[in-house]
């Protein structure tokens, strides 16, 4: 347990001191909130305040970026620097390493989500019920776990840090637009909606938004939950099958 705590604390420090990660994880999403707030601050979308609607989207966007880009890139970097191999040379059970890493990443995503919601509330007066936010954060944790696993899968498949970053971004950007995060799904052509509804970011925001904002879900919760579960399983399977301690030669 003590071993877990030291590894957890060390990884937390590493995450909180990484300048690029801080920019993408805090400055960027909060910047988006400030931008959206300035543009749509007082407006309503279909009877709900635009800011509350968009804030949930920014939280999910951050969870997605954190997995597809943050986790994927970090793992490939650690592999390229020989750090994974050095850690493997120590008698640390893999479960402890995986648990500490997962716990740190989930804590970070939660802190980021809280920061995003707080800025929206304090600066732009977005209103959420406490119980809604609490339930949404539980859902966010599960969703974040899915995206962490998908990030691990990308890292396992990518031959290098550059490739990992490129793959992550190639998945992230299209999914950002095909997801109902910021662009209401109703504005997409029907055939695109047919694709977008299977996107994990879409499923996550469709689960979280109804509990935080007074809007109905687009599709059944069980479908969203099942979909996210399947994405998580896919991530685990690829990550476990293709994980490497060392870069490919």
């Amino acid at each position: 347990m003590r071993r877990f705590l030291v590894v957890f604390r060390s990884l937390l420090k590493i995450n909180l001191r990484d300048k690029a990660a801080l920019f993408w994880g805090f400055a960027f999403p909060i910047g988006l909130i400030l931008l959206y707030g300035t543009i749509w601050g007082g407006q309503d979308f279909n009877g709900v305040s635009a800011m509350t609607w968009l804030t949930v989207g920014v939280v999910v966007l951050n969870i997605m970026a954190s997995g597809f880009i943050g986790d994927a890139t970090w793992l490939t970097q650690m592999r390229a620097q020989g750090i994974l191999l050095r850690v493997q040379a120590a008698p640390l059970p893999r479960a402890v390493l995986v648990a500490a890493y997962g716990a740190v990443r989930l804590v970070i995503v939660l802190i980021q989500a809280a920061a995003i919601v707080l800025v929206a509330m304090l600066v732009f007066g977005a209103k959420f019920s406490l119980s809604g936010v609490a339930l949404a954060f539980v859902i966010a944790l599960g969703g974040a776990a899915v995206f962490i696993l998908l990030g691990q899968a990308i890292a396992a498949l990518a031959p290098s840090t550059g490739a990992s970053m490129a793959i992550g971004q190639c998945i992230y950007f299209p999914l950002m637009f095909l997801s109902n995060l910021f662009i209401p799904i109703e504005s997409l052509p029907a055939w695109l909606y047919g694709i977008a509804r299977w996107n994990p970011a879409y499923m996550l925001v469709d689960l979280m938004r109804p509990v935080m904002v007074a809007v109905p879900a687009q599709q059944a919760s069980w479908l969203n939950l099942l979909g996210l579960l399947l994405y998580g399983l896919l991530g685990i399977m690829i990550a476990a099958r293709f994980f490497r301690w060392e870069p490919k030669r």
């Binding site: 420090k13 590493i14 990484d18 620097q81 020989g82 750090i83 191999l85 050095r86 850690v87």
Partner: peptide, 8 residues
């Protein structure tokens, strides 16, 4: 490779 985390 010396395997030192840059942030620690």
């Amino acid at each position: 490779k010396s395997a030192l985390f840059n942030e620690l």
